[in-house]
Amino acid sequence: MLEKNRHLKKKHSDLPIINERIPFPQIRLIDQEGCQLGILSIEDALKSADIAGLDLVLISNKSNPPVCRIVDYGKYKFNQEKKAKEAKKKQHNSSLKEVKMRYKIEEHDYKVRINQALRFLQASDKVKATITFRGREIQHANLAIELLSKMAKDLEAVAEVQQSPSRDGKNMIMILTPKK
C-alpha cells in the first residue's frame, strides 16, 4: 500500500503547475501568441487567462520572477508528450559488447571477429575485445597484445581505443569506442 502511494505522489509531482496551483505572488506572463505581457500579480494573470478561455501554465520557476504562459492545457500536454517521445526515439544507450578470441586464432576466425566488432561499432556500441588464456598460455601475453593492436589498427577507421590492451587475470582486454 505504501509503494502505491509513493507512486501516486511521483505521478502528481510530474504534472505541470497550472492555474490556482501556481504558488508565486508575481509572475512574468507570456500570452498565447508568445508576446511578453510583463510582470503581473497571479490574480491579474489568472483573469487574463480566464478572459482568453485558456489556462495559465508555469513554464519556468527557475527565473526571477517565474515565467507563466497562457495556453490550452490539453494542447500543451499533448505537445510535451510528443517532444518526450521524439527525444526517447533519438537517444541510443550504447552498451558494451564483447568479442572473445584466443591468441592463436586462425585468420578466418579473426576476420569474423573483426566483422562482429565492426557491426557493434556501427550500431554505436562499445566493444570489449577479450583474449583468454588457458593454463600456461599466459606466458604469451606479448602475442595477445600484438593481436589486439592489430585489431585496433584494422578498426581504426571506425573506432578509437578507449582502454589499451591490459591484463585482467587470465584475460587480456582492450576497449574500443565508435568514432564520432
Rank of each mutant, 00 (worst) to 15 (best):
K170S: 08
P178S: 03
N5M: 09
L15A: 06
A45D: 01
N171S: 09
L40G: 06
V57W: 00
I131L: 15
K153S: 12
E33M: 14
K85Q: 13
E107R: 11
E43D: 14
T132E: 06
A117Q: 01
D72E: 13
L121N: 00
P16E: 04
K9M: 10
S166T: 12
I138R: 03
K83D: 14
D72H: 14
H140D: 14
G169K: 02
R119W: 04
E33A: 11
D109Q: 10
V161P: 02
L46E: 05
P16G: 12
K150L: 15
L147E: 13
I131V: 15
N115D: 10
L54D: 04
N64D: 11
P165T: 02
E146C: 10
K128W: 13
L29M: 12
Q162I: 15
K88M: 09
A84L: 14
A141S: 15
H12I: 14
Q36A: 15
E137S: 01
L56H: 04
F24C: 09
Q139F: 14
L143N: 10
A152N: 05
K180I: 09
I27T: 02
I18E: 01
H140Y: 12
A144N: 02
R167F: 03
S48E: 09
L143A: 10
D14H: 15
Y76N: 01
I70A: 06
K9N: 12
A49W: 00
E106Q: 06
Q91W: 14
K180L: 12
L56A: 07
I22P: 00
K62E: 13
I131D: 05
G169W: 05
Q36K: 10
S41E: 07
V71C: 02
